[in-house]
């Protein structure tokens, strides 16, 4: 693997499978009485989070600690950004203390690319703006493979705010690379221009998207989108695009329902569906630790010569 993990766009399908296979072994560590291996002992990992996130940050932190790394959490409040230290300066100050890796979550697309150019440390993208969230897509793929044994040939429906979602972009890139039949659906105001060029089918009909689907992935809807006039109301959104039990009935009998979290119950997904027998949402969270351990392990070796 390269020095950094900035996005699925930079991974070959071999590298993706490598992560998934390694994550199987990493999962087992979480089932032992002593949930620790010495592999990253003495390595320092900085979790630099410019956006609040309990879930992803905790997941990375547990993954780092299970590998015996020293972790450092920096949560940058919006106010200190306004006080004027640029991302570049913050990174260079941290770099001066020689961390081995920096896990970055930031509101601007491309922020991790800026760090990767400036820093010698290895950079892991934990979500940059609307661009990518590669570890989420990897844990989603791991979850799918746990249930379906494979990814190629599956019909995967991804539904929601496609335009603003980094989870969508990463998942589309990964699933199409591994040969899945990907359908995306959402309000026409929220469809990114040219998305068909990524090899997905686009439809505004959720019913069409979920018909005979093996996997249904729901994306979060944010309240602010109503200010931008992207859709009129949450109520109308739920009626047209929400995942109800009736809609789930159109998918295959062994469908799995996924969501990157946090969920808006009653907006993009009905409560009964979120808690129902097809939902694997909590497994995704558990798998997140194993997948992130795999990423940390694979990235931690010395840099491959080009």
């Amino acid at each position: 693997m390269k020095k950094d993990l900035l996005g699925i766009a930079d991974l070959s399908s071999d590298e993706i499978y490598r992560v998934l296979d390694t994550a199987v072994a990493m999962r087992e560590i979480g089932e032992r009485p002593i949930k620790k291996v010495p592999t990253l002992r003495g390595k320092t990992v900085v979790n630099l989070f410019y956006e609040p996130s309990t879930r992803t940050r905790t997941s990375f932190e547990i993954a780092e600690k299970r590998l015996s790394a020293d972790t450092l959490n920096i949560a940058v409040a919006a106010s200190s950004v306004l006080k004027g230290e640029t991302l570049a300066d913050t990174a260079m100050n941290i770099e001066a203390m020689a961390p081995d890796m920096i896990v970055l979550r930031h509101a601007s697309s491309g922020a991790c690319h800026l760090l990767a150019r400036i820093c010698r440390s290895k950079i892991i993208n934990a979500g940059d703006g609307m661009h990518e969230h590669p570890t989420q897509a990897l844990l989603d793929a791991f979850t799918i493979r746990q249930h379906k044994r494979r990814i190629d040939g599956l019909k995967v429906a991804i539904i929601g705010d496609l335009l603003h979602s980094r989870v969508l972009r990463s998942n589309v890139l990964l699933l199409t690379k591994l040969g899945a039949d990907v359908w995306v659906s959402g309000p026409p105001t929220l469809v990114p221009p040219g998305i068909e060029r990524l090899g997905v089918r686009v439809t505004t009909s959720v019913d069409e998207a979920v018909a005979d689907a093996d996997v249904i992935m729901m994306l979060r809807i944010q309240q602010e989108r109503m200010q931008g006039a992207f859709f009129p109301s949450l109520r109308e959104y739920y009626n047209v695009f929400g995942l109800t039990e009736e809609r789930v009935g159109r998918a295959r009998g062994d469908v799995i329902i996924m969501h990157p979290g946090p969920m808006n119950r009653g907006v993009e997904i009905a409560s009964e569906v979120a808690d129902g027998p097809y939902s694997v949402i909590l497994e995704q969270v558990a798998n997140g630790v194993a997948v992130r351990m795999a990423v940390l392990y694979l990235l931690a070796g010395e840099v491959e010569a080009d």
Binding site: S109, G110, D128, G129, M130, H131, E132, L163, R166, R169, P192, P193, G194, I195, R197, L198
Partner: peptide
């Protein structure tokens, strides 16, 4: 520019 490039890079168009 609002188009495929900005869409894949997650930049507002």
């Amino acid at each position: 520019h609002e188009g495929f490039q900005a869409a894949t890079l997650g930049l507002r168009g």
